[in-house]
Computed example of a mutant assay.
Amino acid sequence: MTDTKPWYLSRTIWAAIVTILTALAGLFGVPLEGFDDAAFVDALLQAVAAVAGVIALMGRLFAQSRIG
């Protein structure tokens, strides 16, 4: 695997982007009125998913070597 490609052709990058956007959409879609524990837990889990997606994306963009 010596070929290289631009970041925007990577399926991994696009999957991470979709994961981040999906988690953020769920996070911002939680209504603040009628706040309950279930909504808080759901929002917290979505925020964690979004952060994990960002970390995965940054790790891939700044990787110095290929996985072998």
Rank of each mutant, 00 (worst) to 15 (best):
L57I: 09
L61D: 04
I55P: 08
L9C: 12
L27T: 06
A25R: 13
R60M: 08
Q64S: 15
D3I: 14
F62K: 15
I67M: 09
F62S: 07
A56F: 07
F40C: 12
L9A: 06
A38G: 14
Q64A: 15
A39R: 15
R66E: 12
L24Y: 02
I17Y: 03
A23C: 00
A16E: 05
W14F: 11
T4A: 01
G53V: 00
V48Q: 12
R60H: 11
R66W: 09
F35L: 11
L61A: 04
V54N: 04
D36T: 08
L32Y: 07
D3S: 12
V51A: 14
R60I: 09
L44E: 12
L45R: 13
V48F: 09
V30S: 01
T19L: 11
A56V: 14
A38M: 12
G53N: 12
W7A: 03
A52Y: 11
A25K: 14
G26I: 00
V51W: 07
A16T: 03
A23F: 03
A63Y: 04
A39S: 09
L9T: 12
L32A: 13
R60K: 13
A56I: 12
F40T: 15
V51F: 06
D3H: 09
L45D: 11
G26R: 03
D37N: 13
A23Y: 00
V30C: 02
A56L: 07
L24A: 05
D36M: 05
V54K: 02
P31L: 12
G34T: 13
A56Q: 15
P6A: 01
I13M: 08
A23W: 00
A15Y: 08
G34K: 02
L44H: 14
P6G: 02
I13E: 03
A25H: 11
V18E: 09
T4M: 04
R11W: 08
Y8I: 07
A23S: 02
V51M: 10
E33M: 11
W14Y: 10
V41C: 09
R11H: 12
I20H: 02
R66I: 06
A16K: 04
T2G: 10
L57S: 03
L9E: 03
T19A: 14
